[in-house]
Design a protein around this nucleic acid. Structure first.
Lengths: 235, 235
DNA sequence: CAAAATTACTTGTCTATACAAGTTGATGTG
DNA sequence: CACATCAACTTGTATAGACAAGTAATTTTG
């Protein structure tokens, strides 16, 4: 059976509520017993859902007090952006799909090593241009192995997070990864997309992300205009 | 009572066993039921201990299989460099101290927030230029609070790691941190040091590192010439 | 009125049990 | 022998309940 566990459903609900702003920052989530009653679960199950939220940094638990809602830095699938001018609310982040997901080969000199399963299955490829405050900030191309992702290429990704889709529809979560970072002069075709001049300094990232699905990696190459925004990270 | 929870004790035991090499990499931990029997606990408690190990990356659980022991987690990439041409061994990394550690104020617009203790004590300041293969690759300026660091300013740091010194002489270890990243055109004075042209794209990092000493942070600002090297990181 | 004690809440830890689901090797069967 | 089946393991999910410990507001006490 391909059923989604209860604790996971509750996690998705709470996560959505938190991110949608239903709870103010610093306010308390319903108590564990309340959540039990409302959703018809027992405490260990509810706690499992809350544990996941804690791990993601969305809540902070205090014994005797409750679960305090936090709003972690706006996360664009692992990539956190910090604005220099305005705070970045989810509202101001837009995504334009330049290349809808298509199935194709990995390409000649793919900059990462691939395992056999990945190479044999081919990959799903998509290109995106992402906006903050209606101004283009970064452009990314993404490769994921075409393994057990039913109906993936027919989904809409416009203004949706790729990682949200993977998480809520396929239970795939990024658990870690590695990346290489450079500052380069922007090539002309990318510069046109980002509305900057050729040769302007941009951040160039190659990243390979591991997921909870064994051997399933997500590969991204990113050009990031850091003129008005920084990449923010914790380690 | 100040008793340590059972799951925490078990976690400490298993962690010590793994790090001491009692289990080989890739081998299996005793099954959850075995651990229950041996330590006189129930499965939820044992699982709580294992969860912590998973979170730390010391084991990897597979349903139906067991808990697989992994190598101790990779370093908290203080700053890993990856060469484009030759592999970089520690041997080829040299450090030149441009400004020996001095005690002074934090400066007007220090780019990070400081706590009271830090601001009141003033800071130790030093500048370094770091070479790979005898070519300058990055320049960093570092600030650390002048709190309980006897004889620090009289130490030699030439070709020594600042972090090694802090660990072995003062038992200060970096436990995590946060950073902001940008690509910028290199300012003229930095360009001269790095032997590149003014305006060439360089990576610019601001990082704040947390340590095992409560409230003691290390602040670094780094200009990195990524022409021939990348910054490599795991997350 | 101010401080101490109580009370009602919260999360933290733990036991005991049950069944589902994935893995592996042994056991039969054709 | 090759292959399917089964049995015995593993971890994953979930229920039900108990008591400990921290928090905060209320009540009692001096």
């Amino acid at each position: 059976m391909n059923t989604i566990p209860q604790y996971r459903k509750l996690y998705e609900i709470l996560r959505r509520h938190i991110l949608s702003g239903l709870y103010e920052e610093g306010s308390l989530l319903p108590s564990e017993n309340d959540l039990c009653a409302v959703h018809g679960l027992t405490r260990p199950t509810v706690r499992q859902a809350l544990d996941t939220l804690v791990k993601e940094g969305l809540i902070l638990k205090k014994q005797g007090k409750g679960s305090i809602v936090r709003k972690p830095p706006q996360n664009i699938g692992i990539l956190s952006i910090e604005g220099t001018a305005s705070a970045i609310g989810g509202k101001y982040l837009k995504t334009e799909i330049l290349q809808k997901p298509v199935i194709r080969n990995w390409g000649e000199n793919f900059p990462f090593e691939l395992n056999d399963a990945e190479r044999e299955s081919g990959c799903i490829y998509l290109e995106r241009l992402r906006f903050v405050d209606d101004k283009p900030v970064f452009y990314d191309i993404n490769h994921l192995p075409n393994i057990n992702l039913p109906r993936f290429t027919s989904r809409s990704f416009e203004n949706k997070s790729l990682f949200d889709t993977l998480r809520s529809n396929y239970q795939i979560e990024v658990t870690g990864g590695e990346q290489r970072l450079k500052a380069i002069g922007c090539p002309v075709d990318i510069a046109r997309l980002l509305k900057i001049k050729k040769g302007d300094p941009v951040l160039y990232l190659q990243r390979k992300m591991k997921t909870n699905r064994e051997g399933f990696h997500i590969y991204s190459i990113i050009w990031f205009n850091s003129m008005n925004h920084s990449i923010y990270g914790r380690f």
